[in-house]
């Protein structure tokens, strides 16, 4: 079976499970909203400082939620050894990787988009460079978290301390992506008089190319014996 067609089948399956239960998206939404609120309480009461850090708070909320989201995406595969069922179907492991990573990215992007209005209200920010640029930046950031996140979630899913292991493995890797996503989002919010946005977006694209390539190449080794 064609790798992309197989990936589409896996993605459709994950979206269908999400739609039937809606458990993951609801939990993520409330968790991320609580995180945004807590940042606004824990941070300074100075609104200019909150505005300055808004992009960072948004991405930290998405990052923390991503650990729950990607862990859950492999929990449903562990239940009844469903992942073995996919392997034996047989589905190409690269299709499984792409399907699950796309699904994770879509979920994180949706979550980030839903959080934006709350960020605007809580931190009193405006989108100086417009919504389309923000949506594009959020998409690149979600893809950048999902590519290494999916492969590490599959590794952690077999470990005893999986809930601790995933962030320990993932967060150090994501520093360049997080830095780029925060800076790019901050520029979209505050404006970009020095024309720096392109550089940060390029860095995000390079990160994506590297980690989607690595995930595609390494995932078969991760899930086979």
């Amino acid at each position: 079976m064609n790798i992309l067609r197989g990936a589409w089948v896996i993605l459709a399956k994950d979206m269908l499970i999400e739609w039937r239960t809606r458990a993951r998206l609801n939990a993520l939404l409330f968790f991320s909203l609580a995180t945004l609120f807590l940042f606004s309480f824990a941070g300074s009461s100075d609104t200019s400082l909150l505005r300055q850090n808004a992009a960072g708070y948004l991405w930290l909320a998405v990052l923390f939620a991503s650990v729950l989201s990607m862990g859950e995406s492999f929990r449903i595969e562990s239940e009844n050894s469903a992942l073995d069922g996919l392997r034996l179907a047989p589905a190409d492991p690269r299709s499984i990787y792409l399907g699950k990573a796309w699904g994770n990215a879509i979920l994180l992007w949706t979550l980030a988009v839903v959080l934006v209005p709350f960020m605007i209200v809580l931190y009193d920010v405006s989108l100086t460079m417009g919504l389309p640029r923000l949506l594009g930046t959020l998409a690149l950031g979600a893809l950048a978290i999902s590519a290494p996140g999916t492969i590490h979630a599959s590794i952690a899913s077999n470990a005893r301390a999986r809930d601790v292991l995933l962030p320990v493995l993932l967060f150090p890797l994501l520093v360049p992506a997080l830095l780029s996503a925060v800076r790019a989002t901050a520029l979209v919010i505050e404006g970009d008089p020095m024309d720096q946005l392109t550089s940060w977006v390029r860095l995000l694209i390079v990160f994506n190319v590297i980690y989607w390539g690595l995930g595609f190449a390494l995932f078969p080794r991760v899930i086979e014996d």
Binding site: I17, T21, I76, E79, N80, S81, G85
Partner: peptide
């Protein structure tokens, strides 16, 4: 393979 694990998705 018909195994002890049934390879089914509980929510489907």
């Amino acid at each position: 393979l018909l195994s002890h694990a049934n390879y089914l998705y509980e929510d489907l």
